[in-house]
Write a protein that binds this DNA or RNA. Structure first.
Lengths: 138, 138
DNA sequence: TAACAACCTACCAAATTAGTAGGGAATATT
DNA sequence: AATATTCCCTACTAATTTGGTAGGTTGTTA
């Protein structure tokens, strides 16, 4: 399950995607428009910025905007930044790999199944983008 | 990510699958053999029993065994029993559905993407079974 | 009736999640 | 230069979930 924080992130990013190219949006604007707690949203947007998905400007006329086109930001990227690993086991994660103590990975049956699962999941999450979210919304 | 508890469950179930048809195994045996904390394992096996995946017998000669063939227990079933929902959003879950407050589901773009993702993931997890785990382990 | 082995209720510590508080730093306008 | 604006940063907190443990109870078999 995605955390509430991740769902907030997607809501904010969708809004930013809808307004891509129209200049920066204010945190406070996004917060009231999308009903996301202001201070919490501040953290989220800041993390997305540090991950190079957003750019920001301070002072009057400032705010946040997408750094690149919504068509180039995959759902997998967003999930990894805010939610963490996509794989179901650490020993199968591409971006958050951790060795497991109790199985020798080469011949672990569960690991093999989870690798297949990861690939199937990633095939979608890597291909689908913020643009797809916006376009899929009626 | 699957919880540690779920990983323990898979380890125990794999062991039970390997010994399918050879009579019940003791909790204490599984615990030492698979290095799973005894009392925690007790809970886990009991939950799996309540979900009708296992059967148990008390007293001497007792223990736990799979109720049905390992080939008929899917990974999805196990995950749902111990870990919970497989979908990434509650509003997209088949077995743990919950309405989301903030989107009208029909035209929520994120929801549509997460439905596709769920289907891709389930296609694997519903098909793969405990037997596949055992067979895939060298 | 003794031993055995699963079952049940309740508790607990650590980690994670979902925020909040309050001020600081950069920018733009006057 | 002063002020308003807006993002940025550190730290704290409450609630929930996770990963267990303790200790007795019930059912089974020999």
């Amino acid at each position: 399950m995605l955390s509430k924080k991740t769902r907030y992130a997607f809501r904010a990013l969708s809004y930013l995607a809808e307004n891509y190219g129209k200049g920066p949006l204010l945190i406070s604007n996004i917060s009231t428009e999308k009903r996301i707690p202001l201070k919490f949203l501040e953290n989220i947007l800041n993390e997305l910025k540090k991950a190079d998905l957003l750019e920001s400007k301070k002072g009057k006329g400032g705010g946040y905007s997408l750094r690149i086109s919504p068509a180039k930001i995959s759902l997998a990227t967003v999930i990894r930044v805010i939610n963490g690993p996509i794989a179901l086991l650490p020993c199968v994660s591409l971006n958050f790999y951790e060795k497991c103590e109790d199985c020798n990975e080469e011949n672990c049956g569960l690991r093999k199944m989870m690798t297949i699962t990861r690939d199937a999941t990633l095939k979608i999450l890597e291909r689908k983008t913020l643009q797809d979210i916006v376009l899929a919304a009626i």
